[in-house]
Write a protein that binds this DNA or RNA. Structure first.
Lengths: 247, 247
DNA sequence: GCGTTCGCTTGATCCAAGTCAACCATAAAA
DNA sequence: TTTTATGGTTGACTTGGATCAAGCGAACGC
């Protein structure tokens, strides 16, 4: 859906709707802080929109990198595979978040990105992003912030994997999800998990049985109500307390 | 040691020596791939050099961020502290590597950087780096690669913490150190650890006793020779085999 | 409808790493 | 030289989470 910049208002609604300038996620995404004129230049950059069906790969480890991806709707996981078959989920990404930053380093993707529900992404050719970010300082700075935020997030995960016990990890995970759903205008207290217990476990460095037991325990103690993938948070402070309570 | 750009050759050797253009680490650092003319412009950017004594902080979590730091010589660790006192070492950095990338995101540092031996760093004011990288495409691209590489590195640590057992983690750690020393022209088979067993353990999500036992075991099996902080790698392939051998 | 599949829960048992504790080595201070 | 402090090693014991195993419930195809 590459499109020339519209010079008049006489264009179809569908075309308007594909632009960053009209995306209601732009506060969470790359366009943050840009002026209207700058936003319109960004519209040209985001040349492709693609639908990815649940279970399909957006990209695979080893593929040549040439674009980063903004999630317009849907839910993804990224994972890395070791030669010996072990794998690890390195993150879950939702609308407004970027995928593919890991590929810049070697010009090849270093992980797999897989849709956990039918999703829609905007492809942003990286070389053109670099050109544009030389001209739009705000874009340049915001992009740097986004990359840095990813590093900070990873440090948080390292902290979690390195120092927390099973229940603390799961509590931290739920609170993080809740906070991100809130930022997107969804309920902070009630949501559906898009991933399986096994995927949660892989992300948190736990086995699926341990995740399941922790869920059950949280429910017994009245912190949450779980029914399969449907989660209701009944006591946020209870979860927060669990997060930094050493035995 | 801020300095105006020298227009003639009649300058003191000491001033020449402080410049990126004369730094023998530039292949490992930010200046990688720059032309001579571009390198000279970068020299102006690196306005400050500072010595950090062993045990001192280069920066602390919470401080305002305004520069990233290139390590000219020495050895650092970064760590994050949780409110409840737990902490985690998030990385060890050596000559030619960058520190402070985590601070871009919030304009405040999110971890502590502490020298593990007397060190010397180059401060690179971030706003000026952004200006310069708009003009020097190679610098812009290389900086993006460096940030991306940090993300990939963090994914590696997540993998390590999430899926590997104690001995695998330590083997991976030693091989990584060895490889980085090699890239700097030092022996790949013999080096001094700059960090304590406790710091290694914190980084690897293990207790110091477990690290110590793993070292002893590697020695018994003839993979390495350990004497306190002095390490000799006797059998690289043995270590590599340990790294992906599930019991 | 009914079987099949996949994901989830729960119980019983096991083991890798944590904990606690004693002791040793090295280096700096007195 | 002895003293003290800091860091490292090793042993005995404990435990949180892994593993193995059985059974359940929801969703889907036929």
């Amino acid at each position: 859906m590459a499109q020339t910049h519209p010079l008049n208002q006489d264009i179809s609604l569908s075309v308007i709707k594909t632009a960053c300038s009209n995306c209601n996620l732009r506060e969470l995404c790359l366009p943050f802080g840009l002026s209207l004129e700058e936003l319109e230049r960004l519209d040209d950059l985001v040349s492709t929109r693609r639908r990815i069906k649940r279970g399909d790969h957006l990209y695979r480890a080893g593929e040549v990198f040439d674009a980063i991806y903004a999630i317009r709707s849907g839910f993804f996981k990224t994972d890395v595979l070791l030669e010996d078959g072990r794998d690890q989920v390195t993150g879950f990404q939702m609308a407004g978040e970027l995928l593919g930053l890991d590929g810049i380093s070697t010009e090849h993707h270093t992980c797999n990105a897989i849709a956990l529900e039918d999703s829609e992404i905007c492809a942003i050719p990286f070389s053109r992003l670099e050109v544009l970010s030389r001209e739009i300082h705000t874009l340049q700075h915001h992009f740097h912030k986004v990359m840095s935020r990813e590093i900070v997030r990873d440090h948080g995960v390292m902290m979690l994997l390195g120092t927390m016990r099973a229940e603390e990890r799961l509590a931290a995970f739920l609170l993080n999800l809740s906070q991100r759903f809130t930022a997107r205008g969804f309920s902070h207290a009630e949501f559906y998990l898009r991933m399986t217990r096994e995927e949660i476990g892989s992300y948190l460095g736990l086995k699926l049985e341990t995740v399941s037991r922790a869920f059950s325990r949280f429910q017994e103690e009245g912190h949450i109500a779980v029914q399969q993938k449907h989660i209701r948070i009944l006591n946020v402070n209870g979860l927060k307390a669990l997060m930094n309570h050493r035995p």
